[in-house]
Design a protein around this nucleic acid. Structure first.
Lengths: 132, 132, 132, 132
DNA sequence: GTGGTCTAGACCACA
DNA sequence: GTGGTCTAGACCACG
């Protein structure tokens, strides 16, 4: 489980951190019940601000990916993340529409798009074998 | 071609505007050579500042979707948008990975995801029949 | 002597027109004493506004490239353009510095730059053989 | 590194600012990785609006001269500016042609022109010794 | 502290 | 009329 951040992009660091952790969960490199490093440890490890790590953790908790125990620290939600409801799918669709429209304008047809998505699924599903 | 903006979300207005226009192009409601409203007209139409509209137009110009023509104002690029290269696909993939991982964690499998994407393509491709 | 205008660039049309005429003079396609088309003729010929052509002509007059006679219309200055003084050279240098700096940053060394300039001189000096 | 602006000329301030910074990079007064002043600092320093500085910075970013780094602010691109391709050279040539034609008409021959360009190169290349 | 966004209102150049 | 530039001042997100 490597955390790779890009300080030059305009995606906030805490978002990137969240994303990396969620990808880790999706890949099953992080399993329900697993402990995450402490805010301090992770911050100094990556070389970023405490608040930044904290913000990521808080949002992950808010979204149900992790639980924050006083004693045990931050752990991956043993029950797994909350299942997607219709509202989630609706938001997903809304967020996807602009990028799909953009790629469509640039000549990426449905098949090419699916190929790309397929590649991501493979990376997420197969990548889990080498469980870190 | 209706421009629908959400002033509550944290997506910048100029981004939403860009997205709407790109979707319009994808749906072929906006065709190569078509004129867009003037910054002032559109701004007062939507009820936002002309600089915000201008920012959207400038970025669309920069990305090759529109030309800013001396006489005719802002025009959909007659040559269409620049075709996607490998770099674009790579960036697309990178931007898609986190959302796919997120939905995967929430129990949306590949088939469900494809269904959603499929629905978007239908909306974009079929919507063109009723040209605005 | 073809006037080629680009309506998509951000260089004003009257500037482009001026440039084309000056290039014509440099190439000796336009010789001292030659008449230029009337404002009206040229405007309708190129499909631009009267005022635009007029502005170009006025500035060419102002810079000494042409004379505007009541009867004979616009003619290339029989005495040639005014010779460059030190002030002109100074301004030229100032205007060149940023582009040279830019190309230098992008890896164009002095030799490459000279090669480009050389090509332009050839085009201007040799092109005159086929006098329009 | 002094920023010298001319408020009389019709060259936009943000362009002059860009030019000054690019010249600074060419002269190696600004080296890869160097930080530029914050928009606010530079704006109040020069006595212009922060949006004007921002516009210059944004365009420099867009052209690859600087990165806008989350933590470190605006930084000279550590990898240097993107190398010139054929398209760049073509545009350079196009932009040079009118000024060369103009100076040619005014009696500046190739040798005189080269002398001027030579002087600029000396200023840019030698100036680096006295690193500000 | 940084840059990002949005607003408001001004003036100018261009066609 | 169009877009381009500049100013001024506000609020927010990020780290």
């Amino acid at each position: 489980m490597f955390i790779q951040l890009d300080f030059e992009t305009d995606i906030p660091i805490y978002e990137q951190l969240k994303d990396e952790i969620i990808i880790g969960i999706a890949k099953k490199e992080l399993k329900p019940g697993d402990r995450l490093p402490s805010v301090r440890a992770l911050a100094s490890d990556i070389g970023i601000n405490l608040h930044t790590v904290n913000k990521a953790y808080q949002q992950l908790k808010q979204e149900g990916f992790v639980l924050i125990h006083r004693q045990r620290g931050v752990v991956i939600n043993p029950d797994g993340a909350p299942k997607a409801d219709e509202q989630y799918k609706q938001k997903l669709k809304m967020s996807l529409r602009p990028t799909i429209a953009d790629s469509l304008c640039r000549g990426i047809d449905k098949e090419s798009y699916f190929t790309i998505v397929e590649a991501i699924y493979e990376e997420l599903l197969e990548g889990g074998k080498s469980n870190e």
